[in-house]
């Protein structure tokens, strides 16, 4: 019966250790910088328009065909405030289909798309699957508010030049504490 006693000692020893679970909605585990939640579009704060030109490279590369992109002429190029000749017109991503493979980020020529690495991208339960189809405004919202610091290797460095306050807010949101 020594084996039985050994089992009981093992369980006794784990009783002495700290719990490994946590109070989930209140206490988030810090999530790593490279976290890949769902793809988001980035906002060019310098010119005040999206980086995305609607070139559809991501749409073609998407393995589960969850994206729909259209392009239009950029009116601000005519005004002379922007260098982009074309700009995204509409952009839908069906988060219900997306499999978070990161390929869209890799193929993007303009570093216009990034994976959401904050908690906002993880808790996305919805009552209706249509609520998971995100349109252009929803995709840009987080970046426009300065709430995302994309990982440098996903997107170019220049996309990370965000206002410091926004960076701070994003880090808090991501459970990483103030910078």
């Amino acid at each position: 019966m020594l084996g039985v006693l050994r089992s009981m000692l093992t369980t006794l020893s784990t009783t002495m250790r700290r719990p490994v679970t946590r109070q989930y909605p209140e206490s988030h585990r810090p999530i790593p910088e490279r976290e890949r939640a769902f793809p988001l579009l980035l906002w060019d704060h310098g010119v005040d328009e999206p980086y995305c030109t609607g070139c559809q490279a991501c749409e073609r590369a998407c393995p589960c065909k969850c994206m729909t992109v259209t392009m239009k002429d950029n009116p601000r190029q005519a005004e002379g405030t922007s260098k982009r000749r074309k700009i995204v017109d509409t952009f839908w991503i069906d988060y219900g289909r997306c499999m978070r493979c990161n390929i869209c980020v890799e193929v993007c020529n303009f570093d216009a798309i990034a994976m959401n690495n904050t908690w906002t991208g993880i808790e996305l339960s919805a009552y209706d699957r249509h609520d998971l189809v995100m349109d252009l405004d929803e995709l840009l919202a987080l970046s426009r508010a300065g709430g995302i610091v994309p990982w440098a290797e996903y997107v170019g460095e220049e996309n990370q030049k965000l206002p410091p306050r926004a960076v701070q807010a994003a880090r808090t949101l991501a459970g990483r504490g103030p910078a």
Binding site: T11, L12, T14, T15, R17, R18, P19, V20, T21, R22, Q23
Partner: peptide, 8 residues
Amino acid sequence: IARVQQRL
């Protein structure tokens, strides 16, 4: 049992 299993 939760304590034994390191849960809350």
